[in-house]
C-alpha cells in the first residue's frame, strides 16, 4: 500500500511538520538525484555522475554517496557528514505530483508515515479556517522551484546525450593499496567534448551547460573523499 497521498485539508488539517532532512530514507542508498543547478556547490564534495534509470533507461544526474550498492558513506547516526545537503533530501514528507498532460497542473502530496510529521511540534500546514498556512505556501514554492530545476536538469542531460558526449566508464580508486572501481556509471568523455564543432561548443557555453559539464568532471576527483570515509 502506498503511503504517499494527496495533501488535503480534510485529513491533514491538524498536521504539523518538523523541518529536518529525513536521512533514514536514503540510509542504504549509494546515490541520490541532483539538479544541474546544484553542481557548483556539490562538485567539491561528491562525485556527480550519470546513471540510467532502471525503469525508463533515461540518464539521470546523481551524486554518489557510496562506492557500492546499498552503501551510504555520507550518513552516520542520522547525521549528514558533508557540507551541502543535496536538495532532494530537504523536501520530505512533501512532494509534487505533476499532471503529465498539462505540466502547469500539480497536486501536493504527503508521505503519511514520515517521521517529520507531528501533531504537536513544528509548523502547521493549514490555518484554522482551513486555508493553506504561509509556511505551506512557502514549502510549495520551494517544491515548484525544485520541479522547474528538475526540468532544466533533464534538458541539460538530454543535450549531453544528444551530442553523444556520455560514455560508460569506470571510476577507479585505491583502497589499501589495491585498485578498485565503480562501474555502471556514465561520464562525459573529455576528448569528445574537445572535438565538438565550434558551433556546438559555443552553444554549450552560452546556455551554461559547459560550466556544469566541467563541474561534473571536476567532481570525479572527490571519489577520494568517499574512500577516506571508508577507513
Amino acid at each position: 500500500m502506498t503511503t504517499i497521498v494527496q495533501l488535503n485539508k480534510e485529513q491533514h488539517q491538524n498536521l504539523r511538520l518538523v523541518e529536518k532532512p529525513e536521512l533514514s530514507l536514503v540510509q542504504d542508498k549509494n546515490m541520490v538525484p541532483v539538479l544541474a543547478q546544484e553542481i557548483p556547490q556539490l562538485a567539491t564534495e561528491l562525485p556527480l555522475v550519470f546513471v540510467k534509470n532502471a525503469q525508463t533507461g533515461e540518464f539521470t544526474l546523481v551524486a554518489m554517496l557510496g562506492l557500492q550498492e546499498r552503501q551510504n558513506l555520507m550518513i552516520q547516526d542520522d547525521k549528514w557528514l558533508g557540507g551541502t545537503l543535496p536538495s532532494c533530501l530537504t523536501h520530505s514528507p512533501l512532494g509534487l505530483s505533476i499532471n503529465a498532460a498539462d505540466k502547469t497542473q500539480f497536486a501536493v502530496t504527503i508521505n503519511t508515515i514520515s517521521e517529520n510529521i507531528s501533531e504537536s511540534e513544528g509548523h502547521s500546514l493549514f490555518s484554522e479556517d482551513g486555508t493553506e498556512s504561509d509556511y505551506l505556501k512557502k514549502r510549495i514554492e520551494v517544491l515548484k522551484n525544485y520541479y522547474q530545476c528538475g526540468e532544466s536538469t533533464y534538458q541539460f542531460t538530454k543535450l549531453i546525450v544528444d551530442l553523444e558526449l556520455l560514455e560508460q566508464q569506470t571510476l577507479s580508486y585505491e583502497l589499501k593499496g589495491q585498485k578498485q572501481s565503480v562501474s555502471g556509471i556514465y561520464l562525459v568523455n573529455e576528448k569528445k567534448l574537445n572535438d565538438l564543432e565550434n558551433e556546438k561548443f559555443i552553444e554549450l557555453r552560452n546556455n551554461g551547460a559547459l560550466s556544469a559539464i566541467y563541474g561534473h568532471l571536476v567532481s570525479l576527483k572527490t571519489i577520494d573523499k568517499l574512500v577516506k570515509r571508508l577507513k
Binding site: 525508463t56 533507461g57 533515461e58 540518464f59 546525450v161 553523444e164 556520455l166 560514455e167 560508460q168 556514465y186
Partner: peptide, 8 residues
C-alpha cells in the same frame, strides 16, 4: 515508444 533507447 515512450522513452526511447540510449545509444550507449
Amino acid at each position: 515508444h515512450q522513452f526511447g533507447m540510449q545509444k550507449c
